[in-house]
Design a protein around this nucleic acid. Structure first.
Length: 158
DNA sequence: GCCAACGTTGGC
DNA sequence: GCCAACGTTGGC
């Protein structure tokens, strides 16, 4: 089974890549996804060792910020079960959880951020869901070619 | 802060 | 099952 490649979004002012870097083992559970399509990707397709682009949305500068790796495959998102949690979902039940998350570990922060503008200008990256209009998916697949191209841009010197 | 696009909800 | 209303996302 060849490895797949992904892009996950995090709000820059909520959980930037620097916050992940400070987590224990630089690993976190990717909770709070409340979109079925994104859920399905995490539940069915994200596998151990898959590489993930960490993308900052909603910030001053939307950009790809680094690379992560899946270190735990889909399991119930417990934050959906806890009424104290912001992402509590009363429809999700303990014995049949609606929402699923994975754990990701930081692999590498890019030397430089790869901005959305830069991605839009890059001929190799035009087919990414990210640059298609009004894409709101917070977890999406990317091709190996797209992944490699973003990594290449991210590792250029400033 | 604005607004377009999209997903979800709920009345019928 | 349709569809209007509403809430959310996310770029600008």
């Amino acid at each position: 089974m060849p490895k797949k490649h992904w892009l996950v979004k995090s709000e820059a002012n909520c959980f930037p890549i620097g916050a992940l870097a400070k987590c224990k083992n630089q690993t976190t559970h990717w909770d709070g996804v409340r979109n079925y399509q994104a859920r399905n990707y995490m539940r069915d397709e994200m596998k151990l060792g898959d590489k993930v682009i960490f993308y900052h949305s909603n910030g001053e500068q939307p950009c790809a910020a680094g690379i992560c790796e899946v270190v735990k495959e889909g399991y119930p998102d417990f934050t959906a079960l806890d009424p104290e949690e912001m992402h509590y979902d009363p429809k999700s039940k303990e014995d049949s959880p609606t929402w699923i998350m994975v754990d990701i570990k930081l692999v590498k922060k890019f030397k430089r951020e790869v901005t959305l503008a830069e991605i839009k200008e890059n001929g190799k990256l035009q087919k990414m869901k990210l640059v298609q209009k009004a894409n709101r998916l917070s977890v999406m697949p990317v091709t190996k070619e797209e992944f490699d191209e973003i990594v290449r841009l991210g590792n250029l010197s400033k």
